[in-house]
């Protein structure tokens, strides 16, 4: 399985199961420049051909819920890594 680590002084991420998909709850502790980076992740998934790969929902206070289809879980985490929103990703047995 793929695991990741983030800096809780910048961003806080939790995930849970949602009808077979993975639901991320993301809260930004520090806004700049991470929020813009997160919008790039959102743009990446909203601009491709698949509409339901990752669905983004914005709430007050820079809180986001993202419902990620299980087959796009790895891609979503790697996009977070690419934009330095998580600090480490690792395959674990």
């Amino acid at each position: 399985m793929l695991t990741y680590a983030f800096n809780p002084d910048i961003i806080y991420i939790t995930e849970s199961n949602n009808d077979g998909d993975v639901e991320f709850f993301i809260r930004f502790v520090v806004e700049a420049p991470h929020l813009e980076k997160f919008k790039e992740v959102q743009h990446y998934f909203e601009d491709n051909e698949v509409y339901t790969d990752a669905l983004f929902y914005a709430y007050e206070n820079h809180e986001y819920r993202v419902i990620v289809r299980s087959d796009y879980y790895v891609e979503f985490v790697l996009q977070l890594m690419k934009h330095r929103l998580v600090e480490q990703v690792q395959w674990k047995e």
Binding site: D21, E46, Y51, T52, L55, Y57
Partner: peptide
């Protein structure tokens, strides 16, 4: 409208 519909219905379950 269809992409937004997927987003709303997924949220509503």
């Amino acid at each position: 409208i269809v992409p937004v519909t997927f987003s709303i219905t997924r949220q509503l379950g």
